[in-house]
Design a binder for these strands. Structure first.
Length: 158
DNA sequence: AGCCACTCGTAAA
DNA sequence: TTTACGAGTGGCT
């Protein structure tokens, strides 16, 4: 199997990263990482941190860059998330339209909630059509914090 | 069968 | 204007 795991420090707190030779499998924020199974994984903090750093400087653009498991529908949704630019937000409805399933908004939201790779598959950039923030598996406060942090980063770069 | 990180139309305050 | 509620909707367990 050849799975490794390690702790990494993200701008919004510690996280657990699990990966294989094919790429990251999961990235979970530590304070809500209950349920993550590390059985059969070798601890390799250095490797995890290197992969993390590389993704921070060069964001992924396709789901193939990760070793994620999911249904065809979920992978399609996650791919759409990777196309949202840093510092921008979109809505659940826009994602549903983008994958050509305009009526499956709710299913899209479920798929987004099932995203196994926090932050790098940017589910935090999806908000409600009515202007509300929507939900976040790791707490809406963190969702807001990530969005603020990203906007700040973009404005500094400009 | 039942659960949802949604959305829209309608209605009441 | 804002808030509340019902129904439509579809993937997933």
């Amino acid at each position: 199997m050849d799975l490794y795991w390690g702790s990494v420090v993200t701008p919004m707190g510690g996280a657990l990263l699990v990966g294989s030779r094919q790429g990251i499998q999961r990235l979970w924020f530590e304070d809500t990482a209950q349920g993550v199974t590390l059985a059969g994984c070798q601890r390799a903090d250095g490797r995890a941190q290197a992969v993390f750093a590389s993704l921070m400087s060069e964001p992924a653009t396709t789901v193939e860059q990760f070793d994620v498991q999911g249904t065809a529908f979920q992978r399609q949704v996650w791919q759409a998330l990777l196309e949202i630019p840093l510092g921008m937000t979109t809505t659940y409805q826009v994602i549903a339209d983008a994958i050509d399933r305009p009526k499956a908004v709710r299913a899209v939201a479920n798929a987004i909630g099932a995203n196994p790779i926090a932050y790098f598959i940017p589910c935090h950039r999806v908000v409600r059509s009515d202007g509300g923030l929507g939900g976040y598996r790791w707490g809406v406060e963190r969702k807001r914090a990530i969005l603020d942090w990203e906007r700040d980063r973009v404005s500094r770069a400009a």
